[in-house]
Write a protein that binds this DNA or RNA. Structure first.
Lengths: 147, 147
DNA sequence: TATATTGGTCAGGCTATCGAACTAGATGAT
DNA sequence: ATCATCTAGTTCGATAGCCTGACCAATATA
């Protein structure tokens, strides 16, 4: 009579595993001055920069938290703040070259994980998983856009 | 040429949405003295109590962090520490009645979310999603057991 | 019984996060 | 034009979360 585990919990377990592994890959590559929360925010920065308020919204934290995280990222040299030409109040947060150099490391680990998953699930189930999650995003992510 | 978003990110988005909603449901029910991290630890406590070290392992935090979180939970009256009869060094962390009274609220919100998802995906895809995630757990969760 | 292992806590310090209050620029109505 | 209001972002103060290192007590092992 034990009901099946809640799907949300299963997802949490898997995504936590992913985060842990990507962070570990960074550490192995010698990058140890960037935290998970910082990476989450940085991952939302678009190619031409993103406003702090937008980052806060997308990462689901308050503006104050986003400010603090961007402060640290800036201090570590991973992002810079430039004035927004279209709005005198606003500033755009942009990735620096130092940050962009890190992307391949993260991407490589992600690919490795996906390959392992595909090996474990088989191609058909992997395909189904991807489809279902993509569809689900429509109702769980209010800020989707492909940057 | 934009490749499909990484499956891990899709999962993160969905599971974060779940967490946010469950916490919001708690808030609506008047419970505002329990945080996400505390809930995650509490969720791992078995029916007869669980050792702190085990909780730490399962929640993937250090023993010290688990101690601090359990301290707060205990202070708020949600758990209690009792001696472990089988090991003089150990103590078992157990849920109190106050905590158990909260479970139905969380469960109800989880059911509601699953229903919404099923409505959006359709029964077949929902089934596939559940199957894939359950399989995936074998390689992403080192501490699975059904309590 | 000496040593290593295991369960747990304490101390200290940094990061993450929030609510409240503030400054500066933008906007809308009159 | 100008005044009230809204929006972008920051600062302040407080607490939670998290880690490393150091430690104590009980158990297991040689």
């Amino acid at each position: 009579m034990t009901s099946e585990p809640f799907v949300g919990l299963l997802m949490f377990i898997a995504s936590r595993d992913v985060e842990t592994r990507v962070v570990a890959a960074m550490r192995r590559a010698g990058i140890d001055d960037i935290t998970l929360a910082q990476a989450r925010v940085a991952a939302r920065i678009g190619p031409h920069g993103t406003r702090l308020t937008d980052l806060a919204e997308q990462a689901q934290v308050t503006k104050q938290t986003a400010t603090a995280i961007v402060d640290r990222l800036e201090h570590a040299g991973y992002v810079e703040r430039v004035p927004d030409p279209t709005d005198g109040r606003a500033r755009l947060v942009r990735l620096t070259g130092k940050a962009e150099a890190l992307l391949p490391i993260a991407r490589a680990e992600e690919r490795r994980i996906e390959q392992e998953w595909e090996r474990h699930l088989g191609p058909r189930r992997m395909r189904e998983l991807r489809d279902a999650l993509t569809l689900l995003r429509e109702i769980t992510d209010p800020y989707r856009d492909d940057a």
